[in-house]
Every structure is written in C-alpha cells, then in structure tokens.
Design a protein around this nucleic acid. Sequence first.
DNA 1: GCCGTTTTCGGCCCGACTGTTTTCAGTCG
Length: 572
Amino acid sequence: MPVHNAEIAAMFDQTAELLEIEGANPFRVRAYRKAARTIEALPKSLTSLLAAGEDLSKLPGIGKDLAAKIAGILASGKFEVLQSLKRELPGELGDIAAIPGLGPKRVKILYDRLHIRTLEDLRRAARAGRIRELKGFGEKSEQRILVALGKPILTEKRFKLSVAEAEAEALIKYVKPFVGRGQIAVAGSYRRRRETVGDLDIVVTGRKTSTISDRLVDYENVSEVVAHGPARTTVILRSGLQVDLRVVPAQSYGSGLMYFTGSKAHNIALRGLANDRGWKLNEYGLFDGKRRIAGASEAEIYKKLGLAYVPPELREDRGEVARARARQLPHLVQLGDIRGDLHAHTTWSDGTATIAEMAAAAKERGYEYLAITDHSKHVTIAHGLDSARLARQIDEIERVNETLDGLTLLKGSEVDILADGRLDFPDRLLSRLDVVVASVHYKFDLSREAQTERIVRAMDNPHVTIIGHPTGRLIGAREPYEVDMERLIAAAKKRNCCLEINAEPDRLDLNDIHAQAAKGAGVKLAISTDAHATHALAYMRFGIDQARRGWLEADDVINTRSLAKLKKSIKR
DNA sequence: GCCGTTTTCGGCCCGACTGTTTTCAGTCG
C-alpha cells in the first residue's frame, strides 16, 4: 500500500508541531512546514516521482536530508523522527496547541509544570484553578481555555468561497459608508480565489485612529470580538466566519493589500527578495532604510523587486516568483474568454428550465454555444433519459436551434459511466451527439485501481468528449473517490479526451493542482457549469477562478474557442 | 532543515494585539 503525499505532508506537519513544542530551531520547524506545503501541491505522487528516478531534493524546500527521509517513509511507511518525538511528548499536544491563545511555548509549560498531556488533563487543571498559578498565565487565560474546551469542535472550519462571498458582500456594504474616500478590499484567500476560505481579510485605508474598526465591532452579525486595536480588529461573525480588518494609510494601500492577500509563503519569498537588496518589505511599504520606495500599489512593489505583476490566484509560492522574475508568467484565462458552456441540464432530466429557456439565458451571457447534456437513464432520481427520450430530445434541440439566432445548441448528454466502465447509451446514439460528458454518479467506493480502470475504459469510447467532475468530490460534504489522477491525465492525453473543471461552487472539480497537472501533460480542459437552472450559468466565474489557480491560459480551455474550432478540436 | 551571480556557513519576514507584566513574551496572521 503506497504512502500518499497527503500522509507524508501530515507527518511533516505533526513533526513541525512537536519540534516547536520541544523548542527546536524555529527555522527547522519552518522547513518541515514548507516541505509539507510543497508536497501537498505536487501534481504527482512521491512514489511515482521516485520510481521515475526524479531527484526529490530538486523540489522547493526539500533538500538532501528531507529527500532521504521521504524515501525512507515511502519504503517503510514510518517516520522515525516523528515516532521518537511522539515518545518524548506523548498525548494530544497538537489538539491542546489548537486552542486559541495556546501556542507551543505555553503548551510546553503546561506539559512540564502540570504534566498536562490531554484535553481532559487540561480541563481538570483549569477547573482546579491550577493554570492561573503558572508564570505567564492568569485568570483570563484559564477562563479562555475553559470556554474553548466547552465548545464542541476545535477543528478549523473553512467556508466555501461562494458562501464567504455572500458574507463579504453584506459586510462590505455595511462598512463602506464609513470608509469615506478611502479604499477597501477583501484580501486573503478570498482574493486568491481559493475554493474555501478560513476567514475574511479586509484592508481599508484611513488613519489608524479611524472609527472603521469600531464600526466593525458594532456590526449586527458579530458574535465575538477577538481583538480590537487601532490598526487591526478581529471579530467572529454569527456564521462562525472570522473577519480580520486591517487599517493602513493611503500611501500603504498596495503593500497592505499585498501583505493581507498573501499567501504567507508568497510574502516570505517577496520579503526575502527585498532583503537581498538591503530593503525591507512590510505592510506599510517597501523601504530603503527609512525611505519608502514603493507602497501605494502592488504593481509598483512588484516592479521595484524586479518582478512582473503576479495575479493573486498565483500567489502560493508554487514557482510564480521565479517565473515573474523571468517574465514567464502565464497569461491567465479570463471570464471574457469563454464562448460557451458544455455541461447543462434542462427539465428533460433534473433541471428547472426548458431547453429554450436555457438557450435564452446562454445567449444573454453572450455565448456562441451551449451544450444540452441531460442525465442518462441510470440516474433514475434525476429522471435520466433512456434511448428513446434522448432520440426525441435530439430532434427537439434541432428544432429549437432553427429558431435561434447567434447561439447554437449542441446536442449532448451527461452519460453515466457504469460500474464496469461501459456507458449508459449505445454507441449508435452517442454518435449522433456533438458533446458527450461522461461522469461517475454511483459506486464511489471502488478501489483506486478499479475506479481508475473504470474511467479510463469510458475514455476508450471515442464518442466521449469530456470526463465530468473527475473526482466526484463535494466540498465539505463528500471526499473525492479514490482515483489515480496521474493515470487519468495520461490516459486523457493519449486519447485526446478532455477533462472538466466543474464550476459548480460545491464541486470545483478538477481542483487547481490537478488542473495544472493536466495542462502540464497537454490535456485540454472544459470549464463547465453543470447548470441545472438558468441562473447557474453564472457559476462560470468560479470555474474560471479555479482554472486561473491552476495556471490555465485561454488556449488550455476548449470552450474559449469559436464553435467551428471547438467542433474540430473535440473530434477524436 | 534549506539555500547560495558576493556566501557551502550563517543567514532565514515582519508587525499588531493581548495578557501578564512593570518592559515584554507569546501568539497570530
């Protein structure tokens, strides 16, 4: 059973955490964390990289030492460094450190002085009033610990981007009047367009003594004020979403926005570049000594650092800094590049709009084409079409097409991939379609091997244009099924089959890393909404976000092409 | 533990807020 990348990343994170508690060199701790992030972002499994003879120490943040350790983990399934740390520091110290206000230093004090190893130990000590007696702790610390222990979940909660967007829009609407002529922006992972966000980071310009943060505290949806100072305020909304508001002077807007947009790793890389030149970069600007040499806009800071402007979606320290220096950043795909949607449902299966209504909505968006891709019969709950109904629908689409001007409906199907990889319609029918999206909708629990085989077999059918939502995940609700994405990508390339970035905000499947891997292998992608209603065609922008995070350019995306070119390029 | 068109050793991002303190360590982003 090969060790997955995610497991090795988790081992390194745990190692970092315990090393930190132990009081190890903080840069060694950071090295483990950075390596974990690198591994998480790898498009291929470490097992296959190693098998292919790749030198792992060439990966960013992974040197000779960690490369050897990874090889050891892959061979044995175990990581001796972590195991020995666990022997030294047994218990649930990681869980304890997750309590707000408790970090490695204080966890160590609790462990050394009160022998606290578990959350239960901590609860007993706090109730007995023994924590307040420790140096560096007080009554407030003890109270905060008890409150935190009383809450059901300590795990980090992340919000889907679409949900965070609704919160952000309401909040901005509330705060904006108080900003006056100043500027305001939502930064953080929200601006980087990650599929989920942990908190909202808002940057406003104004004087530090500004009343804006006071206003935030008064916002009706605030349930808790975590911190409230002149330059920074942190609150938690009723929904549980945390909001950090940062006030900077107008001449620092660019640096403040950049600092708060992150990612942290991207910022650290930029600050390192500033250091190399003897400068300093912080949220107030880029400084040569005490002199500010840039800060009002992000663009001028990147320029001074000798870099091309890096779009927020790329700021993950996944190679964008080096590419920006070499002027080789991709020209990312934009919403305006999209000429049509290749995955949409109607009242023929489980959609809420008719073919004509969907066509009108697509035309309103300025599209040249829209593929009607209703479910096939296996998806009974969605009233999937059988062969006879699909044949009738094809006639109907042709009839509607004659009434349309400027928009072409493409005849399609979202055909189910059966458990053995066969498709839910016979070839003679599939051959009449312009677009065939093949998707998995059941039997998610097949082995990795069998699931991969199933989908590859579906791609063997030359009528298949696109594999729909290739991993089946629903963000926050359903894990992706086990599948070997490297093999899927290689198989798609070989067969000239496309993969989908499903733009539905619950799916966003493929994710950024897989999309980048597909591009790297020369596979084309379709960004499709899977719309079940006319308004859902607007989800396209979430798909664009994900595609941009995957470094995709317009040429990588088939539905940026004109109808004529599209038809040519999807022919297999 | 990583990394290097000045370096294979000596650096490694930087500041705000809180609580516990009498000047600052720890935590957080």
